[in-house]
Write a protein that binds this DNA or RNA. Structure first.
Lengths: 155, 155
DNA sequence: ATAATGAAAGTCAATATTAGTCAAAGGTAG
DNA sequence: CTACCTTTGACTAATATTGACTTTCATTAT
C-alpha cells in the first residue's frame, strides 16, 4: 500500500478516482506514459490489485478506441458477487488472495474488523502449513468457501 | 539487557520510534546497513523481540518497494481466559471440542454469535476433511489456537 | 465487401528487487 | 563445561519491472 514502487502508486491513483466515481475508464498506453512504465505493467497492476477478490470487475477492448474499464462492485447490491468470488477461488487460494477477499468483505460491511482478523487467523500460512503448498492452498480454499457460503445466509 | 549486542541496540532503536508512532515501517536492508549487520539479523530481532506475546504485529512485503512494518497492539483483558483455553488444546482438537470453545468465548463476551459461526465454518469437519482424522484434528487445533491468539489484542 | 494496415490491449517469461528460512559458527552467562 | 543467545551467509520465496511476441478491433485501401 506504500508509494515506494510504481505499481502501488498506480494503484492509489486509480483507487482515488474510484473512491468518487465507482468506475474508471483509462487508456492503457496513456497511463503507462503518465507513470513512465511499460504498458504491460498496467496489466500487472490490474491483475494483482483489481480482481474480483478485491471487489472490482474489469472490462477492456483492444484495437482502435481501446480502453480498460475498472468498476467497483458492491456486494450488498448484489449478493451474487459472493458467488463470483467463490467461483474465482475454485479449489486453490493463496493467503494474499484470501486477505483481499476478507478486506473486500470488510469494505462492504459484511464483516467487521475483528471478523477479518478471525478469518485471517484461520487461513494464515503458518496455521495451515502442512509442508505441501498445494494441500495448503486447497485447504485454504475450502475454509474460505465455507465461510463465504455461511455469510451468504447470515448477512 | 543492555546494548552490548547489536540486536539489543536495534530493538531499542525500533521501540523508541514505536513509543511515539504506534507503527514503524522499515526497509530491512537499510536498517541492516545502518547497524552494519547482515539483513537476516533484522528478522532475528523481530522474531525474538516483536512477537505477539510482546504485543506487536509484524507485516511485510517482498520485492520492489518491499518493507517490514511493526505495529504495536493493545492487549485485551481477556488474556487469562484465552491463555487457559490455548493451553488446554494442545495439538489436537475435535469439532465438538472446538464448538464448546467457541461457545465459551461467546459466553464470556469475547466473541458474538456471528463470530461463532465464522469459526465453526472454518473448523467444520467437512471443510477440514483430509481423509485422515488425526491430521484433521491437528489442523483444527492449529486454526483454533491461531484464532485465539489473535483475539488477545485489538488492531 | 474484403483485405491490408495500424492501433490498441493481452500474455508470458526473463530479470531485478526485495524479504524469509535455516542451520552452522561464534559468544556469553551460569 | 554447558546451555542459551547472537551473528553470519547461503539458499529460498515473493513481488515488481521489462520487453518481445500475440490478439483483437477499427479504419483505410482495393
Amino acid at each position: 500500500m506504500q508509494g515506494k514502487n510504481v505499481s502501488d502508486i498506480i494503484e492509489k491513483y486509480l483507487k482515488k478516482i474510484l473512491a468518487e466515481d465507482s468506475e474508471v475508464e483509462i487508456s492503457r498506453s496513456e497511463i503507462a506514459n503518465l507513470f513512465n512504465v511499460v504498458p504491460s505493467q498496467i496489466n500487472y497492476v490490474i491483475k494483482t490489485r483489481f480482481g474480483i477478490p478485491n471487489g472490482y470487475i474489469v472490462e477492456s477492448k483492444r484495437g482502435g478506441g481501446g480502453y480498460i474499464r475498472i468498476e467497483k462492485v458492491k456486494l450488498l447490491d448484489n449478493l451474487d458477487i459472493i458467488n463470483l468470488i467463490v467461483e474465482s477461488i475454485g479449489d486453490t487460494l493463496s493467503y494474499k488472495e484470501g486477505k483481499s477477499i476478507a478486506l473486500t468483505l470488510l469494505e462492504n460491511d459484511i464483516i467487521n474488523n475483528k471478523e477479518v482478523n478471525i478469518i485471517l487467523s484461520a487461513i494464515n500460512c503458518k496455521t495451515l502449513n502442512t509442508g505441501n503448498k498445494t494441500i495448503e492452498n486447497n485447504l485454504r480454499a475450502r475454509i474460505m468457501i465455507s465461510i463465504l457460503n455461511h455469510l451468504k445466509y447470515e448477512s
